[in-house]
Simulated scan of single mutants.
Amino acid sequence: MEELGPQIKKVIPSASKIEEYSGVLPGALLEYWRSYGWGGFHDGLFWITNPDDFSPVIKAWLAHVNIPKDSDYHVIARTAFGHLYLWDRQSGQTITISPHYSQIFTCPADSDIVSGNSDFSLKCFFSGQAASSLDFDDYKDKPLFKRAVKKLGILESDEMYSFEPALTIGSMPKLENLVKVKMVEQLVLLEQLGDVEVLHMDVSGHI
């Protein structure tokens, strides 16, 4: 967690809120909530989130995904550009939403989750969050985040960087097209602007 860098906009959830997610999310994540709360890292490039905030977003986006009825997905983290990481206690971090390109990435259930080791899986997820992979590249394959902060300012916890017009209706991923918007409202809107593409990623056969 310390490698994620200094924290911004930190909010420590109440003990009752943490208890509400006991048995739903990994114990390791709830310990992170107690110690670090919800907030941004890397100047707001990566955020640990309050899952409650994303209920309308999950409802909108997962209508297009064929998932088991007993699945219960929660957004546990997101990027400055609204890239969402979803967790299900039966399968782990198996759904990722890339809103600007109207894509949902799915992968098979995490073997550690299946064997009952959700804490290890959760720690692996967080340890793999490098700043270079969390950024959003422009049309010249150059990262946008630092330039977005300089132009638009650091995000609040309920904000994200988005493109105007949206990429799905013909815009280009350029700095001049970036705006700072309210996150939940924008994510719901982006789902409505184009056909959602579901891509299944399975790398197990290559490991």
Rank of each mutant, 00 (worst) to 15 (best):
E2K: 12
L4C: 06
L4M: 07
G5A: 08
P6S: 02
Q7P: 04
K9P: 00
K10W: 06
V11T: 13
I12T: 05
P13N: 03
A15R: 11
A15E: 15
A15Y: 10
S16A: 15
I18W: 11
E19M: 11
E20D: 05
Y21S: 07
S22W: 06
S22H: 14
P26M: 03
G27P: 07
G27S: 12
L29K: 04
L30K: 08
L30F: 10
L30P: 09
L30Q: 06
E31R: 15
E31I: 11
G39L: 02
G39P: 01
G40W: 07
F41W: 09
H42Y: 13
G44F: 00
W47L: 02
I48M: 10
N50W: 02
N50D: 14
D53N: 12
I58C: 06
I58G: 10
I58M: 13
L62R: 08
V65G: 03
V65Q: 05
I67Y: 14
P68K: 13
D70I: 13
S71K: 11
D72Q: 12
D72M: 02
I76K: 01
W87P: 14
W87R: 07
W87L: 13
S91E: 12
G92C: 12
T94S: 12
T94F: 08
T96V: 10
I97W: 09
I97N: 02
I97D: 03
S98L: 14
P99F: 07
H100F: 01
H100P: 01
I104E: 03
I104T: 06
P108K: 03
I113K: 10
D119W: 05
L122V: 12
L122K: 05
L122Q: 14
C124H: 10
F125L: 03
F126P: 08
S127R: 15
S127C: 06
A131I: 10
L134Y: 04
D135S: 05
F136D: 00
K140A: 09
F145C: 01
K146F: 00
L152I: 00
I154A: 10
E156R: 13
S157N: 11
D158R: 04
D158T: 09
E159L: 02
E159G: 09
E159Q: 12
S162R: 00
I169F: 08
G170H: 08
S171R: 07
M172A: 08
M172P: 00
L175I: 00
V179G: 02
K180I: 00
E185N: 09
V188Y: 10
L190N: 07
Q192E: 13
L193G: 03
D195M: 10
D195C: 12
M201T: 13
H206P: 06
